[in-house]
Design a protein around this nucleic acid. Structure first.
Lengths: 190, 190
DNA sequence: CGCCGAGTTGAACTGAATCAAGAAACGTGG
DNA sequence: CCACGTTTCTTGATTCAGTTCAACTCGGCG
């Protein structure tokens, strides 16, 4: 469980006691590649902490899949509406590789937040980080052209291009696969 | 302080004791319209809880202001990078009307989170809400055309159009003022 | 071998931006 | 209370980044 634990502690110095309380309710699962963890319209109040593997979150709009996020080792994947708005969401999450995840229900998490101030604070910071990451993506969308967004992702997450289909990456960048292909072709001239 | 307190309690049932600990470190300020509360590149580790009034957050990109958020009664305004990434951010926040705000430093907030589990949980939920609101805006950008975005905002926040210049709203919707004007003209035909 | 998914390339199209004027509303001082 | 400048909003003509539709290439694999 090393990837998850070190990620937790990188956010907040959770005490051993609180960490034990958390990890002992984790359920370990191994999901094959291409498993749908979360479906829109299907209420799933669980959080998947990824120990090994990668998932993508996407939404469907007019028949097309729009990739909104990739979650990798140490990250948590969930349907945010399911958890927080108490109704079924619009997101899908699927594994892109075989994925080992530790699963916990929101009810259990909520119980832990009420008892362990360290866990409440850890999740407070995790939420902050999620907000900031989303804000980065959002502002990048507002300010940068398709090409600039591609180059930024290439610089910051080069490993992603090894793990994930270009089609998904194009969608995550908010461009069509064709446009991404053209951008890459142009770049290859140098 | 009614607007702020009821908003806090709408997120989490904070005990009277914890709420008192929070509110007694608030400092009340009245800012005239058009006051810059937060400047990019200028480290400001304070949170402004808005009791009365409205602010807009914006970023500068290639000489242009891009409005990213409006904060109204009960909301909190801050420079998110200042607070959480411990370096000066890129956001500006200015009042659009005379604004009464209760101000608190992040250091004091952090101290409170460590002592009062209710406050840690309240802020955990507040961060969740911020994330969800940003996610809504972000996904709306991905899925909807300029016109659809306008109509959605018109439906969900009609009051905003009374309080705020169309130019700022256009920018918040991610379109130019000219395009927004055209959309509204077209709509007026019915 | 032939099929299938992933990626590339070409041509035509389009939503929204940009550039450039005007018109209306707003506020401030004489 | 009106004249004047300033800001806000509208309208028109043109341009462009990125989409769409469609065909084609390539590598893997039953």
């Amino acid at each position: 469980m090393q990837n998850i634990i070190s990620k937790i502690r990188s956010y907040y110095p959770v005490s051993d006691e609180a960490l034990d309380a958390l990890t002992c309710v984790f359920e370990r699962h191994v999901f094959p590649s291409k498993t749908l963890l979360i479906r829109a319209e299907q209420f799933d109040r669980q959080v998947y902490f990824i120990e090994q593997g990668i998932t993508r979150s996407y939404i469907l709009h007019e028949g097309k899949e729009i990739t909104t996020w990739f979650s990798q080792e140490g990250d948590a994947a969930c349907g945010s509406w399911d958890l927080y708005r108490h109704k079924a969401g619009f997101e899908y999450v699927e594994t892109l590789e075989q994925t080992i995840a530790y699963v916990i229900s929101v009810e259990q998490l909520d119980r832990l937040y009420r008892s362990y101030i360290d866990l409440a604070n850890w999740m407070r910071i995790l939420q902050q980080e999620n907000f900031l990451r989303l804000q980065d993506v959002h502002i990048c969308r507002l300010n940068l052209s398709a090409k600039e967004r591609y180059e930024l992702l290439m610089k910051e997450q080069p490993a992603l291009f090894q793990r994930v289909n270009l089609g998904y990456i194009a969608s995550f960048l908010g461009i069509t696969q064709q446009s991404l292909s053209r951008i890459r072709a142009e770049e290859r001239l140098f």
